[in-house]
Write a protein that binds this DNA or RNA. Structure first.
Lengths: 343, 343
DNA sequence: GCAGTCAATGTAATCCTTTGCATTGTCGTC
DNA sequence: GACGACAATGCAAAGGATTACATTGACTGC
């Protein structure tokens, strides 16, 4: 019951071997003889020894930790992704650090700094807003192999990305509305400058063009993925003279705000106007009306990103230079917020 | 552009002082002369030195990290709390580790193990389901001061708790319904064995008794905080001969499922039946009808817990033995899901 | 002019593992 | 019977910071 916890020295003493042998017995069991190995295990039990991470990290020049950059932990969209990521690292000895880039944006050189001072071995960024300079700095330090993007990415920076096919999701949404008979389809976007915003808008407009549907300028309404922005969009739509019969929203949360605002304004969803979301968050199937949306497998996105990073950390030489793009499929989930347009 | 990053030795050489002086200049600037200090800072700039965390942790016998135990990262309820916690540690040098106890439950001795092998300095547990043995083990190791509970807690274990006044929240809900004229009030609980479930149910039943309201057994419906359980509860209520005119749900998510199920069964909320939730998650004000609920300041809960843990880590002697209970107030937020009972 | 004080700095031990290299002993082979 | 190969283990040097203790000078007060 000594206050100080057991060290490898203690184990070595009890097992009557050297510390080197203890170390080997634990991390590379085949290198030691059967009897010795057992003696060591026995001694470990007896002393309650656990390897000191700091010492190991110091010696091995690694951090045994990865950092997840999340734009805003407060958004329900991320929670399942994080659960996936954290599960992806569950059987490894990597600790998962989480940083909210909204509540505290990364300082200049902070990212590279975390690597240099041995706090982390790798990064999964859900934030496409990481500054290109920060990334360039990391790459110069030879840390390029240790960064993976998830969901979002940085245009022009050559890092591996795990994401869904956003444009395809948008196309699915438009096609669904078109099949129901809609021709007047509006879009509430995400925040300006966001890669998802761009991809979804692009998919939306290209499909609308392909189907030869009208595309007045004011049918593209600027939002920012928030419920509030959906609510604001509703007011704009209510005020339009030439009102669309359907709206495709860049996120489910936007759709909720939109529907709430439309109903408050006297329009019924889907009787008067159809709404499609994007993401299929948990709430969507229980919203009233249950939301028609584009589903992405968030849990899988998380585990996949974890796998990618693990690969790259395990074998820094593999797939060098080439960017492996993991694109995960999306699915249209039809529920109650879409219907044929009013006649 | 050497590949190896600068060490304190390099800085010492450049500044023409000893490593001890460099260390002091950085962590305890008053101890060195002005000129020396500047020379050191200059050398740090020049070499791009950053202190190696592993080495520092080894020497100082600390981990510079705290662990947050989250029952289920996938639940939107936690995201804002986590944002608060992470903000609470933002200006410290503590890294924030997050573990999902549902996707990977803690093994026996794992919690104490994290302390012993120097991975963490403290724990904030949002999970009241941590095994009492694990906690007892931590306490025996003298780690009792390093654990703080948040939102949930373990009955009988004497650790500091930051939480809201759950019973009071329940009472507020019942009083509100009573004031509207309701006498027949049911309750959908959280999962059995959960401390929040117990506290909220207790507040609900005691207030109902105080107001002399009827309390048939089947008006307490077992749920588990999930949307699905709310949906299931709706079926039970629809099947009742003696139907309540109002339902208080142990969580907003439950209320969503309930309302969705009730409407599907032909009952209108709040015209036919009123519903009150608990938590006031982001979605609640945009649900249709906007949800009347008990609001808790989740962000503040997070930052407060962080503060508590920091205090205890900084000064292990302070408030020793005595459990400081931080109870944060709750507020009734009246929206559109409650109305006088049908006449 | 000398003992004592104090500020500023240096020396070297310490934190605990991992691992390159050296050593020992066994066994098979020519 | 000598030698090489090889398995098993030990010795001791990293790895990079912090800090107790020692040292040096300058300065105070008598």
């Amino acid at each position: 019951m000594s206050h100080r916890s057991a060290t490898i020295q203690d184990v070595a003493r009890v097992a009557r071997v050297s510390t080197a042998t203890v170390s080997r017995a634990l991390s590379n069991p085949d290198l030691v003889a059967d009897g010795t190995r057992e003696a060591v295990f026995e001694a470990v039990q007896q002393t309650g020894y656990r390897v000191n991470q700091a010492a190991r990290n110091l010696r091995m020049r690694r951090a045994a930790a990865v950092l997840i950059l999340v734009p805003n932990l407060g958004k329900p969209f991320y929670s399942k992704i994080l659960a996936g990521v954290s599960e992806g690292f569950a059987n490894t000895d990597y600790a998962v650090l989480i940083a909210d880039t909204e509540s505290r944006p990364l300082q200049d050189g902070e990212l590279a700094g975390y690597f240099i001072d041995g706090r982390i071995d790798g990064v999964i960024s859900l934030d496409g807003g990481v500054s290109p300079q920060a990334l360039e700095q990391c790459r110069r330090q030879g840390l390029g192999e240790r960064i993976v993007f998830l969901c979002e990415w940085v245009e022009g920076a050559d890092f591996p990305v795990v994401c869904v096919d956003n444009a395809e999701g948008a196309r699915l949404a438009i096609r669904h509305l078109h099949a129901l008979g809609h021709r007047a389809i509006a879009h509430v976007t995400g925040p300006e400058g966001n890669v998802l915003t761009a991809a979804r808008r692009e998919g939306m407009t290209s499909e609308r063009a392909r189907l030869d549907l009208p595309a007045p300028e004011d049918w593209i309404i600027r939002g920012d993925f928030s419920v509030e922005s959906g609510h604001a969009a509703a007011r704009k739509i209510l005020a339009m003279s030439d009102r669309p019969t359907a709206v495709f929203c860049a996120a489910d949360t936007v759709a909720f705000g939109l529907i709430s605002g439309l109903q408050a304004g006297g329009l019924s969803v889907p009787a008067d106007i159809s709404v499609v979301g994007f993401d299929d968050i948990d709430m969507s199937q229980y919203y009233i009306p249950a939301l028609t949306t584009i589903s992405q497998d968030r849990h899988r996105l998380g585990t996949r990103a974890a796998e990618r990073l693990l690969e790259r950390l395990g074998n820094p030489l593999a797939s060098q230079g080439s960017t492996v793009n993991d694109v995960i499929g999306v699915q249209l989930v039809v529920r109650d917020s879409t219907a044929p347009p009013p006649t």
